[in-house]
Protein backbone atom coordinates (compact mmCIF):
# COMPACT_ATOMS: atom_id res chain seq x y z
CA UNK A 1 0.00 0.00 0.00
CA UNK A 2 1.51 3.32 -1.07
CA UNK A 3 1.75 6.15 1.39
CA UNK A 4 -0.61 8.34 -0.71
CA UNK A 5 -3.54 5.97 -0.47
CA UNK A 6 -2.72 5.72 3.18
CA UNK A 7 -3.04 9.47 3.64
CA UNK A 8 -6.32 9.51 1.74
CA UNK A 9 -7.60 6.62 3.80
CA UNK A 10 -6.57 8.29 7.04
CA UNK A 11 -8.25 11.53 6.02
CA UNK A 12 -11.39 9.72 4.91
CA UNK A 13 -11.46 7.85 8.19
CA UNK A 14 -11.35 11.01 10.28
CA UNK A 15 -13.75 12.92 8.04
CA UNK A 16 -16.27 10.13 8.17
CA UNK A 17 -15.96 9.84 11.95
CA UNK A 18 -16.57 13.56 12.37
CA UNK A 19 -19.46 13.53 9.90
CA UNK A 20 -21.22 10.70 11.72
CA UNK A 21 -20.54 12.43 15.04
CA UNK A 22 -22.01 15.68 13.78
CA UNK A 23 -25.12 13.98 12.44
CA UNK A 24 -25.72 12.06 15.66
CA UNK A 25 -25.36 15.16 17.83
CA UNK A 26 -27.54 17.24 15.54
CA UNK A 27 -30.22 14.55 15.60
CA UNK A 28 -30.24 14.23 19.38
CA UNK A 29 -30.12 17.99 19.84
CA UNK A 30 -33.15 18.53 17.66
CA UNK A 31 -35.08 16.20 19.95
CA UNK A 32 -33.82 17.40 23.33
CA UNK A 33 -33.52 21.15 22.71
CA UNK A 34 -37.21 22.03 23.09
CA UNK A 35 -37.49 19.88 26.21
CA UNK A 36 -34.35 21.44 27.69
CA UNK A 37 -35.71 24.93 27.06
CA UNK A 38 -39.01 23.94 28.65
CA UNK A 39 -37.21 22.52 31.69
CA UNK A 40 -35.19 25.69 32.08
CA UNK A 41 -38.35 27.79 31.96
CA UNK A 42 -40.02 25.44 34.42
CA UNK A 43 -37.09 25.57 36.81
CA UNK A 44 -37.23 29.36 36.71
CA UNK A 45 -40.93 29.61 37.52
CA UNK A 46 -40.55 26.93 40.16
CA UNK A 47 -37.77 28.83 41.83
CA UNK A 48 -39.87 32.00 41.77
CA UNK A 49 -42.92 30.19 43.04
CA UNK A 50 -40.90 28.86 45.97
CA UNK A 51 -39.67 32.35 46.62
CA UNK A 52 -43.03 34.11 46.60
CA UNK A 53 -45.43 31.35 47.54
CA UNK A 54 -48.56 33.52 47.56
CA UNK A 55 -48.05 34.81 44.02
CA UNK A 56 -50.15 33.44 41.22
CA UNK A 57 -48.50 35.28 38.36
CA UNK A 58 -44.97 36.30 37.40
CA UNK A 59 -44.81 39.08 34.86
CA UNK A 60 -41.48 39.94 33.27
CA UNK A 61 -40.45 43.56 33.79
CA UNK A 62 -39.74 45.34 30.53
CA UNK A 63 -36.18 46.49 30.03
CA UNK A 64 -34.77 44.39 32.88
CA UNK A 65 -33.60 40.92 31.93
CA UNK A 66 -34.44 38.35 34.54
CA UNK A 67 -36.62 40.69 36.58
CA UNK A 68 -40.14 39.64 37.37
CA UNK A 69 -43.08 41.07 39.22
CA UNK A 70 -44.69 38.53 41.50
CA UNK A 71 -48.37 39.34 41.56
CA UNK A 72 -51.44 38.03 43.24
CA UNK A 73 -54.71 39.12 41.70
CA UNK A 74 -53.02 42.07 40.02
CA UNK A 75 -51.41 43.30 43.23
CA UNK A 76 -47.61 43.39 43.17
CA UNK A 77 -46.25 41.31 46.06
CA UNK A 78 -42.58 41.51 45.24
CA UNK A 79 -39.99 42.15 42.58
CA UNK A 80 -37.98 39.02 41.82
CA UNK A 81 -34.53 39.55 40.37
CA UNK A 82 -31.25 37.67 40.04
CA UNK A 83 -28.23 38.75 42.03
CA UNK A 84 -24.68 37.54 42.36
CA UNK A 85 -21.60 38.12 44.47
CA UNK A 86 -18.21 36.57 45.00
CA UNK A 87 -18.18 34.01 47.76
CA UNK A 88 -15.43 31.90 49.26
CA UNK A 89 -15.34 29.30 46.53
CA UNK A 90 -16.70 31.24 43.58
CA UNK A 91 -19.77 33.18 42.60
CA UNK A 92 -22.91 32.80 44.71
CA UNK A 93 -25.97 33.14 42.51
CA UNK A 94 -29.24 34.18 44.04
CA UNK A 95 -32.79 34.92 43.17
CA UNK A 96 -34.00 37.67 45.49
CA UNK A 97 -37.57 38.81 46.08
CA UNK A 98 -37.92 42.41 47.24
CA UNK A 99 -41.20 43.77 48.57
CA UNK A 100 -42.69 46.99 47.19
CA UNK A 101 -41.65 48.64 50.49
CA UNK A 102 -38.02 47.88 49.63
CA UNK A 103 -37.59 45.09 52.17
CA UNK A 104 -36.30 41.59 51.65
CA UNK A 105 -39.11 39.16 51.03
CA UNK A 106 -36.88 36.10 50.71
CA UNK A 107 -34.08 34.71 48.59
CA UNK A 108 -33.11 31.45 46.98
CA UNK A 109 -29.60 30.24 46.30
CA UNK A 110 -29.45 29.10 42.68
CA UNK A 111 -25.83 28.11 42.60
CA UNK A 112 -22.74 28.31 44.75
CA UNK A 113 -19.37 26.73 45.34
CA UNK A 114 -19.07 27.26 49.07
CA UNK A 115 -17.44 24.69 51.33
CA UNK A 116 -19.85 21.87 52.10
CA UNK A 117 -20.84 21.88 55.75
CA UNK A 118 -19.59 25.40 56.38
CA UNK A 119 -20.30 27.87 53.61
CA UNK A 120 -23.25 25.98 52.27
CA UNK A 121 -25.07 26.66 55.52
CA UNK A 122 -26.16 29.88 53.80
CA UNK A 123 -29.04 27.76 52.55
CA UNK A 124 -30.04 26.57 56.02
CA UNK A 125 -33.04 28.16 57.78
CA UNK A 126 -30.98 29.30 60.77
CA UNK A 127 -29.14 31.78 58.60
CA UNK A 128 -31.63 32.27 55.80
CA UNK A 129 -34.57 33.12 58.04
CA UNK A 130 -32.80 36.24 59.23
CA UNK A 131 -33.42 37.96 55.92
CA UNK A 132 -37.16 38.25 55.33
CA UNK A 133 -38.47 41.64 56.43
CA UNK A 134 -35.07 43.29 56.66
CA UNK A 135 -34.64 46.75 55.17
CA UNK A 136 -31.52 48.00 53.43
CA UNK A 137 -30.04 49.51 56.59
CA UNK A 138 -30.33 46.21 58.45
CA UNK A 139 -28.45 44.17 55.87
CA UNK A 140 -25.14 44.22 57.64
CA UNK A 141 -23.18 41.20 58.82
CA UNK A 142 -22.08 41.02 62.43
CA UNK A 143 -20.30 38.24 64.26
CA UNK A 144 -21.97 38.70 67.63
CA UNK A 145 -25.53 37.58 68.14
CA UNK A 146 -28.06 40.36 67.77
CA UNK A 147 -31.19 40.17 69.84
CA UNK A 148 -33.33 42.74 68.05
CA UNK A 149 -32.71 41.42 64.56
CA UNK A 150 -31.23 44.71 63.39
CA UNK A 151 -28.41 42.95 61.53
CA UNK A 152 -27.44 39.63 60.00
CA UNK A 153 -25.55 37.26 62.24
CA UNK A 154 -22.75 35.50 60.37
CA UNK A 155 -22.46 31.72 60.26
CA UNK A 156 -19.66 30.54 62.53
CA UNK A 157 -16.72 29.54 60.39
CA UNK A 158 -18.24 30.96 57.22
CA UNK A 159 -17.98 34.71 57.61
CA UNK A 160 -16.95 35.25 54.00
CA UNK A 161 -19.86 33.26 52.64
CA UNK A 162 -22.25 35.05 55.02
CA UNK A 163 -20.96 38.43 53.92
CA UNK A 164 -21.01 37.54 50.24
CA UNK A 165 -24.58 36.39 50.47
CA UNK A 166 -25.64 39.50 52.35
CA UNK A 167 -23.93 41.69 49.76
CA UNK A 168 -25.81 39.93 46.97
CA UNK A 169 -29.13 40.45 48.77
CA UNK A 170 -28.29 44.05 49.57
CA UNK A 171 -27.37 44.75 45.95
CA UNK A 172 -30.69 43.34 44.83
CA UNK A 173 -32.58 45.57 47.26
CA UNK A 174 -30.54 48.56 46.10
CA UNK A 175 -31.15 47.71 42.45
CA UNK A 176 -34.89 47.60 43.03
CA UNK A 177 -34.76 50.91 44.90
CA UNK A 178 -32.71 52.48 42.10
CA UNK A 179 -35.10 51.18 39.47
CA UNK A 180 -37.99 52.67 41.40
CA UNK A 181 -36.33 56.08 41.63
CA UNK A 182 -35.56 56.14 37.96
CA UNK A 183 -39.11 55.05 37.22
CA UNK A 184 -40.57 58.02 39.10
CA UNK A 185 -41.35 60.84 36.72
CA UNK A 186 -38.85 63.68 36.38
CA UNK A 187 -41.26 66.26 37.72
CA UNK A 188 -41.17 64.63 41.15
CA UNK A 189 -37.47 65.30 41.63
CA UNK A 190 -36.97 68.01 44.23
CA UNK A 191 -40.65 68.30 45.09
CA UNK A 192 -42.74 67.35 48.08
CA UNK A 193 -45.93 65.43 48.15
CA UNK A 194 -49.02 67.40 49.14
CA UNK A 195 -49.89 66.53 52.72
CA UNK A 196 -52.49 69.12 53.77
CA UNK A 197 -55.64 66.99 54.19
CA UNK A 198 -58.06 69.78 53.17
CA UNK A 199 -56.14 70.45 50.00
CA UNK A 200 -55.87 66.75 49.25
CA UNK A 201 -59.61 66.43 49.66
CA UNK A 202 -60.24 69.15 47.07
CA UNK A 203 -57.67 67.69 44.69
CA UNK A 204 -59.10 64.19 44.96
CA UNK A 205 -62.60 65.45 44.23
CA UNK A 206 -61.27 67.39 41.27
CA UNK A 207 -59.39 64.44 39.73
CA UNK A 208 -60.68 61.15 41.10
CA UNK A 209 -58.32 59.12 38.86
CA UNK A 210 -55.18 60.59 40.45
CA UNK A 211 -52.87 58.50 42.64
CA UNK A 212 -50.40 61.15 43.78
CA UNK A 213 -49.99 64.89 44.22
CA UNK A 214 -46.71 66.81 44.34
CA UNK A 215 -45.65 70.41 44.45
CA UNK A 216 -44.15 71.89 41.32
CA UNK A 217 -40.65 73.34 41.30
CA UNK A 218 -40.73 77.13 40.85
CA UNK A 219 -44.54 77.38 40.85
CA UNK A 220 -46.19 78.22 44.12
CA UNK A 221 -49.67 76.85 44.53
CA UNK A 222 -49.32 74.58 41.51
CA UNK A 223 -49.87 70.87 42.01
CA UNK A 224 -48.54 68.08 39.79
CA UNK A 225 -50.99 65.21 39.56
CA UNK A 226 -49.79 61.67 38.94
CA UNK A 227 -51.57 58.59 37.92
CA UNK A 228 -49.26 55.67 38.67
CA UNK A 229 -45.86 56.67 37.33
CA UNK A 230 -47.33 59.05 34.78
CA UNK A 231 -47.69 62.77 35.18
CA UNK A 232 -51.34 63.31 34.48
CA UNK A 233 -52.06 67.01 34.88
CA UNK A 234 -51.29 70.27 36.68
CA UNK A 235 -53.76 71.89 38.99
CA UNK A 236 -53.24 75.62 39.25
CA UNK A 237 -55.08 78.69 40.47
CA UNK A 238 -56.29 81.20 37.90
CA UNK A 239 -57.77 84.63 38.65
CA UNK A 240 -59.71 87.16 36.66
CA UNK A 241 -61.91 90.17 37.20
CA UNK A 242 -65.55 89.28 37.55
CA UNK A 243 -68.56 91.50 37.96
CA UNK A 244 -68.22 92.01 41.68
CA UNK A 245 -64.47 91.57 42.05
CA UNK A 246 -61.64 89.08 41.56
CA UNK A 247 -62.68 85.46 41.25
CA UNK A 248 -60.38 82.47 41.64
CA UNK A 249 -60.69 79.07 40.05
CA UNK A 250 -58.67 75.92 40.45
CA UNK A 251 -58.15 74.52 36.98
CA UNK A 252 -56.73 71.11 36.19
CA UNK A 253 -54.95 71.06 32.86
CA UNK A 254 -53.83 67.74 31.46
CA UNK A 255 -50.28 67.34 30.15
CA UNK A 256 -51.60 67.42 26.60
CA UNK A 257 -53.02 70.91 27.22
CA UNK A 258 -56.70 70.26 27.77
CA UNK A 259 -58.98 71.22 30.61
CA UNK A 260 -59.48 68.22 32.84
CA UNK A 261 -61.58 69.78 35.58
CA UNK A 262 -62.30 73.13 37.18
CA UNK A 263 -63.65 74.33 40.47
CA UNK A 264 -64.59 77.72 41.79
CA UNK A 265 -62.52 78.57 44.82
CA UNK A 266 -63.51 82.15 45.61
CA UNK A 267 -65.61 84.91 44.07
CA UNK A 268 -67.46 88.12 44.86
CA UNK A 269 -70.24 87.79 42.34
CA UNK A 270 -73.57 88.98 43.59
CA UNK A 271 -75.69 89.33 40.49
CA UNK A 272 -78.58 87.08 39.75
CA UNK A 273 -77.67 83.79 38.02
CA UNK A 274 -73.95 84.28 38.69
CA UNK A 275 -74.05 81.18 40.86
CA UNK A 276 -75.06 79.24 37.80
CA UNK A 277 -71.93 80.34 35.96
CA UNK A 278 -69.77 79.25 38.88
CA UNK A 279 -71.49 75.91 39.47
CA UNK A 280 -69.80 72.59 38.63
CA UNK A 281 -72.39 71.85 35.94
CA UNK A 282 -71.33 74.92 33.98
CA UNK A 283 -67.62 74.42 34.57
CA UNK A 284 -68.05 70.88 33.27
CA UNK A 285 -68.61 72.42 29.81
CA UNK A 286 -64.97 73.45 29.65
CA UNK A 287 -63.60 69.94 30.06
CA UNK A 288 -61.68 68.80 27.01
CA UNK A 289 -61.08 72.29 25.64
CA UNK A 290 -57.56 73.25 24.62
CA UNK A 291 -55.93 76.57 23.81
CA UNK A 292 -56.22 75.93 20.10
CA UNK A 293 -59.93 75.12 20.52
CA UNK A 294 -60.45 78.50 22.13
CA UNK A 295 -58.35 80.25 19.49
CA UNK A 296 -60.34 78.47 16.80
CA UNK A 297 -63.58 79.98 18.11
CA UNK A 298 -64.79 76.93 19.97
CA UNK A 299 -65.99 78.04 23.32
CA UNK A 300 -68.66 77.72 25.96
CA UNK A 301 -71.82 79.77 25.73
CA UNK A 302 -72.21 82.35 28.44
CA UNK A 303 -75.05 82.07 30.91
CA UNK A 304 -77.74 84.56 29.96
CA UNK A 305 -77.96 87.20 32.63
CA UNK A 306 -74.45 86.46 33.88
CA UNK A 307 -72.37 87.30 30.87
CA UNK A 308 -69.61 89.07 32.74
CA UNK A 309 -69.24 86.26 35.23
CA UNK A 310 -69.25 83.68 32.43
CA UNK A 311 -66.60 85.62 30.60
CA UNK A 312 -64.50 85.88 33.75
CA UNK A 313 -64.67 82.10 34.15
CA UNK A 314 -63.59 81.67 30.55
CA UNK A 315 -60.75 84.10 31.16
CA UNK A 316 -59.60 82.04 34.16
CA UNK A 317 -59.63 78.84 32.15
CA UNK A 318 -57.83 80.46 29.23
CA UNK A 319 -55.22 81.86 31.54
CA UNK A 320 -54.65 78.46 33.20
CA UNK A 321 -54.28 76.78 29.81
CA UNK A 322 -51.84 79.46 28.75
CA UNK A 323 -49.81 79.16 31.96
CA UNK A 324 -49.48 75.40 31.63
CA UNK A 325 -48.59 75.75 27.97
CA UNK A 326 -45.87 78.28 28.83
CA UNK A 327 -44.62 76.13 31.70
CA UNK A 328 -44.46 72.97 29.66
CA UNK A 329 -42.72 74.55 26.71
CA UNK A 330 -40.33 76.10 29.22
CA UNK A 331 -39.68 72.75 30.88
CA UNK A 332 -39.18 71.00 27.59
CA UNK A 333 -37.00 73.78 26.17
Amino acid sequence: MSSETNVVKVAANLTLACLVSGLVIAGVYSITAPEAARQKELAKTQAMQELVKEADQFAPIAGKTGWFEAKKGGKVLATVLPSESKGYGGPIKLLVAVTPEGKVHDFKVLGHNETPGLGDNIKKPKFKDQFPGKALAQLNVVKQPVADGSAIEAITGATISSKALTVAVREAVEAVAAAKTSATPDHVAGTQPITDPERLQVLRELIPAATGFHTVVGKTAWVAVEKGDQLLAYVLPAESQGYGGVMRLAVAVSTDGKVLAAKTMAHKETIRRADEALAPAYLQNFVGLSLSDLAGGKSVDAIAGATVTSKAVLACVTKALGDVNDYQSGVKG
Binding site: V28, Y29, E35, A36, Q39, A43
Partner: peptide
Protein backbone atom coordinates in the same frame (compact mmCIF):
# COMPACT_ATOMS: atom_id res chain seq x y z
CA UNK B 1 -8.56 10.35 17.30
CA UNK B 2 -11.47 8.31 15.99
CA UNK B 3 -12.04 6.77 19.42
CA UNK B 4 -11.97 10.19 21.02
CA UNK B 5 -14.43 11.52 18.45
CA UNK B 6 -16.70 8.61 19.17
CA UNK B 7 -16.47 9.08 22.94
CA UNK B 8 -17.00 12.82 22.63
CA UNK B 9 -20.10 12.26 20.51
CA UNK B 10 -21.60 9.84 23.01
CA UNK B 11 -20.78 12.11 25.94
CA UNK B 12 -22.40 15.06 24.18
CA UNK B 13 -25.50 12.97 23.61
CA UNK B 14 -25.55 12.04 27.31
CA UNK B 15 -25.17 15.70 28.21
CA UNK B 16 -28.03 16.76 25.96
CA UNK B 17 -30.29 14.04 27.30
CA UNK B 18 -29.49 14.81 30.94
CA UNK B 19 -30.01 18.52 30.36
CA UNK B 20 -33.44 17.88 28.91
CA UNK B 21 -34.70 15.16 31.23
CA UNK B 22 -32.62 15.29 34.43
CA UNK B 23 -31.82 18.99 34.92
Amino acid sequence: PVYITSIATIVTVVQLVLEAYFP
